[in-house]
Design a protein around this nucleic acid. Structure first.
Length: 743
RNA sequence: GCGCGCUUAGCUCAGUUGGUUAGAGCAUCUCAUUUACACUGAGAGGGUCGGGGGUUCGAAUCCCUCAGCGCGCACCA
């Protein structure tokens, strides 16, 4: 064959850096990521079944990491596959404001540069600065997302703080309040003294610390504690009713004893919350700073006195220690008790799980606060007429298989979480976020989106960021308006995300969607693992083992980066990634390129390419070649079945082996003889067969490696563009080898 | 304390209702070839499938048990 028949770009090795931007431009110009355009151009039938995924929105102020890259690769594979199969396919992009994280980052930056706190700036100015910051940084994450080849419909882009989403959040709050699901109450909450806000139970991260465990003489009792600084107000001694050691004491009995700041009168309380196994079995309680103690106190109508203020400073009840920070006061208090002869012993090696704010905050101090809560155990009426509690509804969603969690083992984790779920504290004392639509005038409270009138002031607090995230599958589709998008694409087909946010997000979307829409937010939940380094360690700055997805894209191409995150990553398990693996898949991209080059160089009749339509085998092919095509179609079926089962790793592996070991190494090698041979019919037939196998391979590979396959496709002289289709001929919308929607 | 997961070649992992001689990639070694592609091809070595016990004609796969690693939740006076 004359070399001139081979298009110019094929004369060089595959160069992702050169090809990728061109492919991105082609895709973007085509508009095919938008399902409306696909229908308009005849790519998708107007009545085709919908397939939708809402992208878990990355933090606006963040940069793309390997976890994002894995998520984008998985979702893009599902999306491209379904688009090629003819579904009305929507992948909806967005970004998240990440309220606490963003505000604390901006506050820190401002303090470093100007030595000013948010109170120096005021609410309005701080929000303006945060707005500037998010505006600047959002371009970064959006650009990086595009570079991975993600075929997202940017015309539907949503941001958690944009006008429409803000309105949806307000609407949701009001509806839930009116249904009696949202209430305001004084309860023990997790208070972060550093960020000066409450945080939810799920946001708490336990950090193991070794700390002394002190035993003190408390009248006739010995009590144990790791927190002597809370003990000033302790005037109740709690033992288990069945504890034989204390049976001589009766419930309510008064005992005079010497304590930290002098003589006090303690009251004996018998309550089953006391654990006979721990320490001496006797404890004193601090109801204002402990959830369990608060419950005990409430149960018996005991006094509740605050000991520690919002910043962690001891209150006047601490006597001579008042005004000191709890951390500094602790050893001094122990010293004083020791001097008074009340220190019995110290167990130095006690392992304590310290509660901290997982979002970069401080050590949690339980405090009693008036906050907004969502009642999870209250029976209410759902839009579809069902009467049950939120907890029950969240269980029902998975029991009934309306939502299926994959891998299955996370189903149990989800149920376990629901069992332990308590009312969700949704108010936060930060400024950046959706402001609570509640208004106060004296003792009166009104909930409404706009001010009820003269003299009413709005609640200063904002909502937990997961409140708005919970609405995400439908707020992005136009809710509360009953839009066409909402009707077509909700419930979404799949929610694909990391297993680490199963509780934060997945469970809350189910909660919100079932209540506000009476339907589940997604039919399936697919949870992927964490991306770790080659040795299985978490990637972190301090270890210096971070593999940056964009560096990998620059060095080896986006296709290689994507494939390295898919092959070998079985469902729900962590992925171990090393640069060597990425490099290996770059070789594969080049292999594809060269296969195409060989096939094109050996086209006998470039004017009449084979039909290549699924299950129809070209009549001009000789028997041996028909067998080859059937074999390729079998691979297509296998790949499709694997994708349908969410076994993307197996699908990618199957097509990888077919293309390299079978197509390149065997079929093409054998073909060299045939093509050079004297049997014209055999040689023409083989030439057509190779072309057809190439087309099938490109299609099967495209969801996994969109760039190199599209680049090759664009060089092919003639493809199987279906009749009636307008616009650019892109592999992105070429028909899938096993056929349309119903398979 | 309750629950979940993992343990298969030097490394990373497949092996979905039990069924020939347990597979792949990377790495290692040997050979070939200037080729569609050296970002290549052919081949080799490498495994008592974590230990023990059981069910079965048959177990990497099912059951019991032990060990190591990892994770979640709860407790935390």
């Amino acid at each position: 064959m004359e070399p001139s028949k081979v298009p110019a770009p094929f004369l060089k090795p595959y160069n992702p850096t050169e090809q990728e931007p061109q492919m991105l431009e082609l895709w973007e110009k085509s508009g095919y990521a938008n399902p409306d355009v696909c229908v308009e151009k005849g790519v998708t039938k107007p009545d085709a079944e919908a397939y939708s995924i809402v992208l878990p929105p990355p933090n606006v102020t963040g940069t793309l990491h390997m976890g994002h890259a894995a998520m984008l690769a998985i979702e893009d594979i599902l999306i491209r596959y379904h688009r090629m199969r003819g579904y009305k396919t929507l992948w909806l992009p967005g970004t998240d404001s990440a309220a606490i994280a963003t505000q604390s980052k901006v506050e820190t930056d401002i303090y470093k540069a100007e030595k000013k706190t948010r109170h120096d700036l005021g609410r309005e100015e701080l929000l303006r600065r945060i707005g500037e910051f998010t505006e600047e940084s959002k371009a970064t994450i959006i650009n990086q997302t595009k570079k991975m080849g993600s075929s997202l419909d940017w015309s539907r882009y949503a941001y958690t703080m944009d006008e429409k989403r803000y309105a949806a959040v307000m609407e949701a709050f009001v509806r839930m309040y009116e249904a009696g699901l949202i209430y305001r109450g004084d309860r023990i909450v997790n208070w972060d003294p550093k960020l000066q806000t409450t945080v939810s139970d799920d946001e708490i991260e336990r950090v193991e610390e070794t700390t002394p465990f002190y035993y003190f003489q408390y009248g006739p009792f010995v009590i144990g504690t790791v927190r002597p600084e809370t003990k000033f107000g302790d005037k109740y001694l709690v033992v288990h009713p069945d504890d034989a050691r204390y049976k001589e004491y009766t419930h309510g009995q008064k005992i005079d004893l010497e304590w930290i700041n002098g003589p006090i009168t303690a009251t004996v309380i018998k309550d089953e919350a006391a654990n006979m196994e721990v320490g001496s079995g006797a404890m004193t309680i601090t109801p204002a700073h402990s959830g369990i103690d608060f419950e005990i106190a409430t149960r018996h109508g005991l006094d509740i006195e605050r000991v520690i203020d919002d910043r962690g400073i001891l209150l006047p009840i601490a006597g001579e220690f008042a005004g000191q920070h709890i951390k500094k006061a602790r050893p001094l208090i122990v010293e004083k008790l020791k001097n008074k002869g009340l220190l019995v012993k110290i167990d130095e090696k006690y392992t304590n799980n310290l509660a901290t704010n997982g979002r970069g905050g401080g050590v949690i101090e339980p405090q009693i606060k008036r906050q907004w809560f969502i009642a999870v155990n209250k029976e209410i009426a759902f839009p579809d007429g069902k009467k049950m509690t939120l907890k029950e509804r969240m269980r029902e969603a998975v029991d009934s298989k309306q939502t299926e969690i994959m891998p299955e083992r996370f189903d149990k984790v989800y149920r376990h979480w629901i069992d332990n779920l308590r009312d969700w504290c949704i108010s936060r004392q930060i400024w950046f976020g959706h402001r609570i639509p509640a208004w106060f005038k004296g003792d009166e409270v009104k909930v409404s989106i706009t001010s009820p009138g003269e003299g009413w002031t709005q609640d200063e607090d904002t909502l937990d960021t997961w409140f708005s995230s919970g609405l995400w599958t439908f707020s992005t589709l136009g809710w509360p308006e009953e839009t066409a998008d909402l009707k077509t694409y909700h419930p979404t087909a799949v929610l694909e995300t990391g297993y680490d946010i199963l509780f934060f997000w997945v469970a809350r979307m189910i909660l919100m969607s079932t209540f506000l829409r009476g339907e589940v937010p997604f039919k399936k939940v697919y949870l992927h693992g964490l991306v770790r380094d080659g040795q299985g360690r978490k990637m972190s700055k301090s270890l210096g083992n971070i593999i940056d997805p964009l560096t990998m894209v620059e060095k080896y191409g986006a296709d290689a980066a994507r494939l390295s995150l898919i092959i070998g990553a079985s469902m729900g398990n962590d992925v171990k990634l090393s640069e060597d693996r990425v490099r290996g898949y770059k070789h594969f991209a080049n292999k594809i390129w060269n296969i195409a080059r060989f096939v094109l160089e050996n086209q006998h009749d470039s004017g009449a390419a084979p039909s290549t339509l699924q299950s129809k085998v070209d009549g001009r092919l000789i028997e041996a070649d028909k067998v080859l095509i059937v074999e390729a179609q079998k691979v297509a079926e296998e790949v499709s079945a694997d994708i349908d089962k969410f076994r993307l790793d197996l699908a990618a592996d199957a097509i990888y082996h077919f293309v390299w070991d079978r197509f390149a190494a065997e079929i093409i090698e054998q073909s060299k003889e045939i093509l050079k041979g004297d049997d014209k019919r055999a040689s023409a037939s083989r030439s057509r067969a190779l072309h057809e196998i190439l087309l099938i391979s490109l299609k099967l590979l495209h969801p996994f490696m969109p760039f190199v396959t599209e680049a090759v496709w664009q060089q092919l002289p003639k493809k199987d563009l279906p009749a009636g289709r307008q616009g650019v001929d892109l592999l992105m919308v070429a028909p899938w080898p096993t056929g349309g929607q119903t398979g």
